[in-house]
Each structure stands twice: as C-alpha cells, then as structure tokens.
Nucleic acid binder design. Structure first.
Length: 658
DNA sequence: TTAAGCTTTCTTTTT
DNA sequence: GAAAGCTTAA
C-alpha cells in the first residue's frame, strides 16, 4: 500500500485522492505537477481502476515514458494497458483502427513536416503559375505555415489571411484557399495524413461517428492531461468530447510556461476550463520543491516583466544557497571551454553526469560546445536540432518502405523516383500520373509503360526492379529492404554525394536493426514519423540510441525539449540578444513575452546550480554581441557576475561556483 | 528538362 | 555555413 498522505502535500493529496469530477491543477514550476499526475494514476490503479480506462496525455513522448516509469516505481508494477502518449500518437493509434470511416485506408502514411512541405510546394507551383498574382503573394513556405496555423486554430484560411494579409486581392486570397484545397485533395488521394490531420481527423471521428464517440467516452473513464496551457483548440475539443460523459478529467498546467503559441496553443484553454466544466475543483500548487530560493527569485523577477500573466506566488522550501552565476566569455569557443571544464570539475566532485544539462534556444548554439565535449571526452546526449529520422538518407530509404506499405503515397513515390539519374521534378510527376492508374504495386511493376529518353527508361526500369525484389521479401522486411536498396545503387549514390557516406550507410543498417522492435512495417513507419530520437546520439560502438542509454551522459537540449524535466545543475547558454530572445520576435510584444516564458522555463529546470552564459563576440563575424534583454532587465543583485570584463577583455580569475 | 554552378538568404522552437 | 533559389549550359 502506498502512503499517499505522507508522500504528498495537502493540495497534491486532495487532487490525487479526491480527484473525481473535473479538476484543474494550476501549478507553478517545480511544484509537483508531474508528481500529482503520476500519483493520481497510481492511486486510480490501486483503487482497482483498469489501466485500460485511463488516458494520460503528455506533450512529448519523453515526458510520457518518464511519467509511466515513475508510476511503475510507485506501484511496483507497470500499469499495463494504460493509454499514454502525445495527442498525435494517440490520434494515430485510433485512426489506424477507424480511418476507413473517414475515407482513408488504415495503412495511411504520416507526412512529417518536410513531406507535407514538399507536397504543398507542388500544389503551390502548379496553381500559382496558372493564376494572376502579385509579387507580394506569400511564398510556399509561408502558405504552408498559414494553412497549418489556421487548421490548428479551427479557423478558415480566408479569415486568417484577410486579417494579416489585407494588402492581398481577394483573388489572391482565393488562390491561397485553392492551394490549400488542392493540397488536402492530394493528401487524401495519397492516403496520407500530416501531423495536423492526426488531430483534426481524430476530432472528426468523434464528432461524426457516434458509435466511436460513445465507445471512447465509455473507455476513457479517467482522463489526465499534462501541460494544458500548450494545447490548441482542436486538442481542447477532443478532450472536452471525451470527458463530457464521465467528467473525470484532470488537467494540469501553468500559464507562465506556455511556449507553443507558434503551434496555435491557446492559454485560454486552461483559463476557461472551469467554464467548460461546471463544478471544477481548482488546486493551486505554489510550493516549489525543486529550486533554491536564489534560482527561484531570479525566475520570479524575470517573469514579472511580462504584462500578460496571472499572478502567482511561488515559494521555495529549500535552504539558502549560492546565487546563480552569470558568466561572460569572449566567444562561443571560450564559453564552450568554460562549460566543459566546469562540467569535468562537477563530475570529479561526485556529481552524476545525468544531473547536468546545458540548455539553449536554438540547436546551432550548441555547436562549439559539442566539439569541445568531444575533445574532452565528456559523453553527452543531444536533444534538439535534426532528428535521426529526418536525415536525407534515412528519408530516402523510408520512402521505398512507404511505397511498399502505401502504394498511393505520391510524396514517397516522387522522392524515390527522383533519386535516379535523369528523373527530375517534371519527369517524376509524369511517371507518377501513370502510376496513379494502378491499384497495387505488383501491377505497376509488371504493366507500367512510360516513354522517355533512354536514360529515363533505364532509371525507371531500375526503380521497378528494386521494387520487384522488395515485394518478394517475407521476413525481416525492413532490414532486408535496406540491404537491397543499398546494393542496387543507393550505396553508390551515397558515395558520390557525401563525404561521410560510411556513417550514413551505417545509420541505415542501424535503422534496420532498430526496426526489429516493430511488428509490422506500418508500425515502424508510424514510429519513424512520431518519435523524437535525435541524430548524433551514438555510444562508443557507434550505435544510434533511439531510447534509453542516457546513463552517465550529460544532456544538451533545446529549452522546448527540456520542458517538464529537471537537473541539479543547469547551464543556459547563448544569452545574446537576437538569439535569445530570437530576433524574429522583436516586432511583436506578445512574442517577446513568449520568449521570456521560455527563459523562465529554462532557469526553473535547475535544482541547485544555475549558470547563465554570454559570449561577448560572435565567433563568425567578430562582431560584438549585445547581452540578452532577459539578463539586462534583471536586478544585478540576483546573480553573481564572473568571467571577462566587458571594457577590457581582461581575464578574470578561475570561476568556481562554490 | 536536367543538373551543375553560382547567388542569396537567413538563420527557432515541434508533433 | 547550409540550403534554397536562380541562371545557364548541355
């Protein structure tokens, strides 16, 4: 039996044990949000609730697996059958079963951002060339963004553009709308869904099909949602529909940590929650268990600069400690050197590496640091930047698999075709329009006829003969496919195009090995689209780590990826104006505030030691950097300043926290 | 129509 | 400093 009374404070205890009905937990950073959620799950299971009846939605897959691990620890067993994961992952799981109700097949492919961009660009080029438009008509990338943003806000594209692009003619707005519709049709014809579709179609499934709706309203007797401040209207609607029957809905969040408005997150979802669910019990968690008073003070002072916020009074219970350090280095290299030395020192003193994290606004800021850590032999895990499955060579091979699994996938077909000599954009399009006439791959292999130049015909023959081999594989489909594709020219392609072709070929073999964990190609392909595994995460034997294997390694992470996590020691690097806050955000006040919340998230990840670092000089251009607003606006008594002297560049004595 | 070669851009965050 | 965009030769 778990002693909940002892493990939790009063507010947490109330939320965990009397959490039937709608509950809103407004929780400051480090106040035990995750603790509340995990203990609530454990409590429910201990009370005899079948884990199958629990839906636990988190923001990242990482957060989901960490949370379930914690539940397992509390319960001493894994809550088998629980529905846990991100909105997209759970949407995917449901749609794999019910996609036919919406006119898709269950083997639909998922288009990641790049895929969907490529498909949209195709629609854009086709329509934009046919129609009158001014030079001010937004580029494909912007249209792509607008379409996604409008959909995630449940808005009409015309309305969105009418407001922010009022200089466009109504014909141009119509053009944007037809591009959007054409794109939607192409997706449907391709039996493919983009990330937004995973949410929107999930919602459609619930609103349009009462049997399914009722089944899942019944199924999910207890619903728990983390980071509710970062949900968008579609996600909010989904939750509302699912919860309306049993009303056992617990959502947690913190408006000060809302950092996804660029993805159409709405703070109002959490603030209006009590109106949507009458008799909502509200719990405020205001005790911070994580950070020292000094760290918390800095965070609190910083967020005070935001006008748009809800007052809260977060108090630390830890005892007084050292102030955060603000460290000035000459440039990124010196900053990197300092950090790696400091990390070595901390580890020598007995700190465990996985309790140390380096956080940054953008992945490129960590470049020099990566070099330095490699030089010093400090193992690290990178979370941010290019993902393993987003690399060109991976996506090339995955396209073959996508065609194999979903013959109608236009994006995948085009990508495969264009890998071959003599086939470019135009020819690929023409060939695909022939392929469209078939229904299964086997027919296309046998019957496809295309007249082009000799070069094109040879390339096409080559493509088809590869597929001929691929369709005959019966076991270890992915691993064998990788081998066949490499053998039939892709290896040569890698060699002629990339210096690091060995590494890339190795990645592909790793992918083959990794795929053994999946029952089917479809399963594997979903995972590829939805997983967060980052590139560069290799151990000594050069094996890519897709999960786990993070023991004894420090963490490098974007702040977005760090949400919900905590470490003893945190370095926040690159506090340069224009980088953090990002310069794109200058004009818009509301976006500066979002950047500040991001800064707030970063510093509140730290339990005991917090370092803020600033390189004075840009290492590329040798220009002087401005220090970040987020430092400048702070009272200087909140931190201790170390390192270079701004006037003279003089070295100051060795820096030590203690 | 492709592919190479040159130029310009613009540097975000993520499922 | 890479990637997209544009120009030009083949």
């Amino acid at each position: 039996m778990i002693n909940f009374k002892e493990e939790l404070n009063n507010e947490q205890f109330e939320a965990v044990t009397k959490g039937d009905g709608p509950v809103l937990v407004l929780a400051g950073a480090g106040s035990g949000k995750t603790r509340t959620l995990t203990y609530r799950v454990a409590y429910l299971v201990e009370q005899g609730v079948d884990p199958e009846n629990i839906l636990l939605v988190t923001f990242t897959n990482k957060a989901s697996s960490e949370m379930l691990e914690r539940v397992e620890k509390i319960l001493n067993r894994y809550p088998r059958g629980i529905w846990g994961g991100t909105f997209h992952r759970i949407g995917n799981r449901l749609l794999r079963k019910y996609a036919t109700l919406l006119g898709y097949k269950n083997n639909f492919t998922i288009l990641d951002r790049e895929d969907s961009m490529v498909l949209l660009k195709q629609c854009y080029d086709e329509l934009a060339n046919k129609n009158e438009k001014s030079n001010y008509f937004p580029k494909a990338k912007i249209i792509h963004n607008l379409i996604g943003f409008a959909r995630n806000r449940g808005m009409d594209l015309r309305d969105l553009m009418g407001k922010s692009y009022d200089y466009l003619s109504s014909q141009e707005i119509d053009l944007a709308q037809s591009i959007s519709e054409y794109y939607a049709r192409k997706k449907k014809d391709s039996n493919a869904m983009d990330f937004d579709d995973l949410l929107i179609n999930w919602l459609k499934l619930l609103t349009g099909h009462s049997k399914v709706r009722e089944k899942f309203q019944e199924q999910f007797k207890y619903i728990l949602v983390d980071e509710y401040q970062d949900t968008n209207v579609i996600q909010d609607k989904i939750i509302n529909i699912l919860a309306v029957k049993n009303k056992n809905i617990l959502v947690v969040g913190d408006d000060s940590q809302s950092i996804y408005s660029f993805r159409a997150a709405e703070i109002s979802n959490i603030l209006d929650f009590p109106q949507n669910f009458p008799k909502t019990k509200i719990h405020k968690l205001e005790t911070n268990y994580r950070s020292t008073p000094e760290i918390l003070e800095l965070a609190n002072q910083s967020i005070l600069n935001n006008e748009n916020k809800y007052p809260k009074n977060l108090k630390s219970i830890k005892s007084e400690n050292k102030k955060p350090l603000f460290v000035v280095g000459r440039d990124n290299r010196e900053q990197a050197k300092f950090i790696s030395q400091e990390i070595s020192r901390l580890i020598d003193q007995g700190e465990s590496p996985q309790e140390i994290a380096v956080l940054f606004r953008s992945a490129f800021q960590a470049l020099e640091l990566e070099l330095e850590l490699n030089r010093e032999g400090i193992p690290y895990t990178m979370r941010g930047g290019i993902k393993f499955f987003e690399q060109k060579h991976i996506k090339d091979i995955v396209s073959y698999l996508k065609v194999l699994s979903n013959f109608k996938d236009e994006t995948a077909w085009r990508r495969v075709l264009m890998l071959h000599e003599g086939i470019g954009l135009q020819t690929a399009g023409k060939i695909f329009s022939q392929i469209k006439n078939f229904n299964i791959l086997e027919d296309a292999i046998k019957l496809l006829e295309f007249k082009g130049s000799e070069k094109i015909n040879n390339s096409l023959k080559n493509v088809l003969s590869i597929f001929k081999e691929l369709v005959e594989i019966k076991e270890d489909v992915i691993q064998s496919s990788v081998k066949i594709i490499l053998k039939n020219g892709y290896n040569l392609y890698l060699k002629t195009n990339f210096e690091n072709f060995l590494e890339r070929a190795d990645d592909l073999n790793q992918m083959g090995a990794f795929s053994e964990n999946y029952k089917s190609v479809d399963d594997f392909l979903s995972e590829v689209a939805l997983t967060e595994a980052f590139k560069n995460n290799r151990n000594q034997s050069n094996v890519v780590q897709v999960e786990d294997g993070e023991k004894d390694k420090i963490i490098l992470s974007t702040i977005h990826q760090a949400k919900g996590l905590e470490w003893n020691t945190v370095f926040v690097i690159g506090l340069v104006d224009g980088q953090f806050p990002h310069r794109k955000v200058y004009e818009k006040h509301s976006e500066i505030e979002e950047e500040r919340r991001l800064f707030y998230v970063a510093v509140t990840r730290a339990k005991d030691k917090l370092y803020l670092t600033y390189p004075m000089v840009s290492s590329r251009s040798e220009d002087m950097n401005e220090v970040s607003t987020f430092i400048e606006e702070l009272d200087e008594s909140l931190f201790e300043k170390k390192g270079r002297n701004e006037e003279s560049f003089d070295d100051l004595p060795v820096i030590e926290y203690e």
